[in-house]
């Protein structure tokens, strides 16, 4: 098994560095460089989060790899270096070889690979979709199935009676996730969650829309932050209710809609980034 497993994610190749990058691993690293150079990735990002030691002789192949990438107008960055390693890299003047960054997003930005608003929203879709299905299944015993996401144009196909809204705040982008239910769907979900038979949405029941979104966001955030390198912050959801809620955006950003069918009825999630 390779000591340097990697994962190509679009224009970034993440290389998971070993706990001890020793002289004995230099040849393997050099030989893998060639295959990494052949990937479409513009950014090669070395993840040192498990690394506790880097032998001085191991830094030479890094310099060679960096130069080869540079000739191809590609970039090498590192992340996850612990404070001791960072200190010794600085002391040896190797900052410009390792080019430490805090996240995958920072590496992409430094390489000039800024995302447009549409791409950012698309990246949010799968983690949010997966989290919604899991949350409703585990917490409310409601089976939900996502339909094909689409760009919002006009109004929802049904009346939205209750919605949970959460603001997305990170250094890279702002936006929102809105969880929209027709009143009857939401009552069905709530009744299933507590094995009750409520007929109207009370204040206590409204609270559940915020909590469900809170859980969905928390799940999605882990994937977006830990696996995709974003830096989304904690947020507290707000709940909106009305007989016919109209969810409108203030800005010009595209809004993606993920429609769902569930055992309690239809609902949808809107995602916007700006």
């Amino acid at each position: 098994m390779s000591h340097f497993p990697n994962q190509v994610n679009g224009d970034v190749n993440i290389i998971f560095m070993p706990d001890n990058f020793s002289t004995g691993l230099v040849d393997e690293f050099k030989s893998l460089n060639k295959s990494w150079l052949l990937t479409p990735a513009i950014v090669q990002l070395m993840d040192f989060s498990k690394t506790i030691r880097i032998t001085p002789s191991a830094t030479h192949p890094l310099i060679l790899f960096k130069n080869a990438l540079k000739a191809d107008q590609k970039y090498l960055f590192s992340m996850g270096l612990n404070s001791d390693l960072l200190k010794s890299i600085k002391a040896e003047g190797l900052d410009n070889v390792f080019l430490p960054v805090g996240s995958l997003t920072e590496a992409r930005e430094k390489a000039g690979l800024r995302k447009d608003k549409k791409k950012m929203s698309v990246e949010l879709i799968n983690p949010v979709l997966g989290a919604a299905v899991k949350t409703l299944g585990l917490q409310a015993n409601v089976e939900a199935k996502a339909g094909q996401p689409y760009l919002k144009a006009g109004q929802s196909a049904y009346d939205v009676g209750i919605a949970g809204v959460i603001s997305l705040m990170s250094e890279q982008f702002h936006g929102s996730i809105v969880l929209c239910f027709p009143g009857s769907t939401f009552l069905g979900i709530y009744n299933s969650m507590f094995d009750e038979d409520n007929k109207v949405i009370t204040r206590e029941i409204e609270d559940a829309a915020g909590e469900l979104l809170n859980i969905i966001y928390g799940q999605a955030k882990v994937e977006l932050n830990d696996k995709m390198g974003h830096q989304l912050k904690m947020a507290i959801p707000k709940v909106l209710t009305a007989e016919r809620l109209q969810i409108r955006s203030n800005g010009s950003s595209p809004i993606f809609v993920i429609p769902f069918e569930s055992s309690a009825g239809p609902f949808h999630i809107e995602i916007e980034t700006n």
Binding site: Q139, F194, E204, D207, A208, G210, E211, L212, N214
Partner: peptide, 11 residues
């Protein structure tokens, strides 16, 4: 802080 979660856990 969320009433729903207090209810879920208590139940």
């Amino acid at each position: 802080d969320m009433m729903t979660m207090r209810k879920i856990v208590s139940k």
